[in-house]
Structures are given as structure tokens and as C-alpha cells.
């Protein structure tokens, strides 16, 4: 659905994008993650035709976005990291304006606007002035506006920044609904826990380059392998520790009350063997689980933060 290859963009002498590659499949909810200044907004601006890259290609649903920016606007709905609303317009007038800007007029425009306002929960507010809406409502209005021309791809730049948890939850539900409708959504956000809940794919960008990309499950599984084993022991802890110390796959052991956190390099089968060995050695094991990696831990590892810091924050 969306393919970016070798994208480069310089701002003066600074490279905002340095050969960025990206691939978003149809129907995916793609989390676009990176630290500040990594090049996320620049990439989004290029995707939406608001910026010209220095080199590279952007193919959106079969259309070359660099050569035919006019056609790409029909394929992409853009929700920026600001509201971008006219305060002196009513909600339905705002929608009508962007319907007309998208080439939709008359009854069709009104029906489409009404449906979208209902979908984002603003149906009852259609006669309100935009400046009377709360922050969350404005953001939902922006989302409805971006969908007015029924684009197959929705690109969102930090859409939930500054929203309260309740509104973020509602926003997440809307995103899931859009995915069910077959939309491809590219969403850039710093709230990684939220992305991991809704996204199907993820791309981590740093210093203008894609450093990790793929299905979120695959990535989390990869990181899970590197996550520690958490063994809860009810009795015979010393025996368990002796066994673990001599085990070839054990790298580190950290004791936390009844829990033993083990840096274990083996695969799933090796985990099963270890459990069997512990039980056979007379250790009463109450819990045996591989700590689940999170998107935060992946992100922090990639941008060279210490994993220990991540684990502490997780606890």
C-alpha cells in the first residue's frame, strides 16, 4: 500500500532523512516511532505531498507521490500534530468546507460529513462552533476531516499528544474501527504502550534511517527471547540457585524476594528442560515465565538506553 525507498532530505547541512525505507501493507495499523528529531514529521510531510524529498521514491497505492503529488492527496488523509481548525465555523460548516476542498458537494457531502461526525462521536455537536469544542473533540473533528474524501490511507502525526487518558482510549477505539473498515493507518506517536496495543506493524526510525521494521508480534517475540526468565520459588531456593549457576544458558541471576530473575539465552524448548530440571531437583516452582518485552524496551534498546533502566521502569 505504501512503499518508501531511499528517502533523503537535507535541511541546510543537517540530514533529516538519510535513505529511509519503509513498507506499509494494506490494512495495517503501522506505528511510526522514533525519538524527537528522528525524521518522523519530515517523512509524514513527504508522504502527504507537503515536502519535496531530495531523493528517493514514495509509492502510495501504486502512485508515485514525488512525481504525482496531486493524485496522492486523494489517497491519503492527513491528521497533523496540531488541530488546524477555523474557530469561527460551526462543526458541520468545517466539514462542509473540507468536503468541497476534496471535491464533494451537496447532499453527498452532507451525508458523508454526518456519518463521519457520528463515527467520531460528534454527531450531537454538529451545530456547535469549533472554538467551543474541547481539545479531544477538536482532535476527533480533525480525524473526521481527514476521512472526508474516504482515503484508503490515513496518516496521523502524534494525534493523541496532549489528550487525557479517556480521550486517548476513545481515539484508540476509533482507530480499531477504522482498521476493521479496511483503512491503512500510519500513526506516529511517543506513547508506545498505546501503539503496542493497537498497531499491527511498527517501524522505528532514528537519525533519518529505519532501524527496525516489521510485525509488532515478531518484534516483541524477538525481544522476548532477550527478556529475563522470572522464576518464583516456594521452597528450596538454594537448590534452584545452585542448578541455575551451573546451567550453560544462564548468563545473569538477580534475586528479588521469592523471585529469581534469570538472564536466559535458550529457546522455548530449553526453558521447558530447565523447568523439568528444577522440578526434578526438588525445587517447588510456583511461577515460571519469560517476562514479556514491551515496545518501550525495544525502543530504548535501539536508541542505546540501558535495558536495566527499562526494567526498573517496568516494575
Amino acid at each position: 500500500m505504501l512503499k518508501v525507498e531511499g528517502l533523503k532530505k537535507m535541511y541546510g547541512r543537517m540530514a533529516a532523512l538519510d535513505g529511509l525505507c519503509m513498507c506499509v501493507n494494506a490494512g495495517a495499523l503501522y506505528g511510526f516511532v522514533g525519538p524527537n528529531g528522528a525524521g518522523k514529521t519530515t517523512t509524514i510531510k513527504i508522504l502527504t505531498g507537503l515536502l519535496l524529498p531530495d531523493s528517493g521514491s514514495v509509492i502510495v497505492d501504486g502512485i508515485d507521490a514525488v512525481k504525482e503529488p496531486g493524485k496522492v492527496t486523494e489517497k491519503i488523509g492527513y491528521v497533523p500534530d496540531f488541530f488546524g481548525v477555523y474557530d469561527n465555523l460551526k462543526v458541520w460548516e468545517y466539514m462542509e468546507l473540507f468536503s468541497a476542498c476534496g471535491g464533494l458537494y451537496g447532499l453527498n457531502a452532507r451525508k458523508r460529513s454526518w456519518d463521519l461526525l457520528e463515527q467520531v462521536g460528534l454527531g450531537e455537536k454538529s451545530d456547535y462552533y469549533v472554538d467551543g469544542l474541547s481539545r479531544g473533540m477538536k482532535q476527533r473533528l480533525c480525524l473526521a476531516r481527514a476521512l472526508i474524501h474516504n482515503p484508503p490511507i490515513l496518516v496521523m502525526d502524534e494525534p493523541t499528544s496532549g489528550l487525557d487518558p479517556g480521550t486517548r482510549y476513545e481515539f484508540k477505539e476509533i482507530l480499531k474501527e477504522l482498521r476493521e473498515q479496511g483503512k491503512t493507518v500510519v500513526i506516529s506517536s511517543h506513547i508506545l504502550s498505546e501503539l503496542s496495543e493497537v498497531c499491527t506493524d511498527i517501524g522505528i526510525v532514528e537519525q533519518g534511517k529505519m532501524v527496525l521494521e516489521g510485525s509488532i508480534n515478531d518484534i516483541l517475540n524477538q525481544i522476548n527471547v532477550r527478556s529475563p526468565l522470572l522464576i518464583t520459588v516456594c521452597r528450596n531456593k538454594e537448590q534452584a540457585l545452585n542448578l541455575l549457576r551451573s546451567h550453560p544458558y544462564v548468563e545473569t541471576i538477580t534475586i528479588r524476594q521469592n523471585d529469581i530473575m534469570v538472564g536466559f539465552t535458550g529457546e522455548q524448548e530449553d526453558e521447558a528442560v530447565l523447568l523439568k530440571q528444577l522440578v526434578e531437583a526438588g525445587v517447588m516452582v510456583c511461577g515460571f515465565v519469560r517476562e514479556r518485552g514491551s515496545l518501550e524496551s525495544v525502543f530504548m534498546q535501539i536508541i542505546n538506553h540501558e535495558e536495566g533502566m527499562v526494567l526498573i521502569s517496568e516494575n
Binding site: 502527504t48 505531498g49 507537503l50 496531486g70 492527496t73 486523494e74 491519503i76 492527513y78 497533523p80 496540531f82 488541530f83 488546524g84 481548525v85 477555523y86 473540507f98 476542498c101 476534496g102 471535491g103 476531516r145 474524501h149
Partner: peptide, 14 residues
């Protein structure tokens, strides 16, 4: 100033 120009430019408006 209202940050609406970019929104207009991402529509069919030239």
C-alpha cells in the same frame, strides 16, 4: 498562523 494552510494543501485544492 492558524496552521490550516497545510491542511488545505493536502486536499484537492491547488
Amino acid at each position: 498562523e492558524r496552521q490550516t494552510l497545510n491542511l488545505l494543501l493536502t486536499t484537492r485544492m491547488t
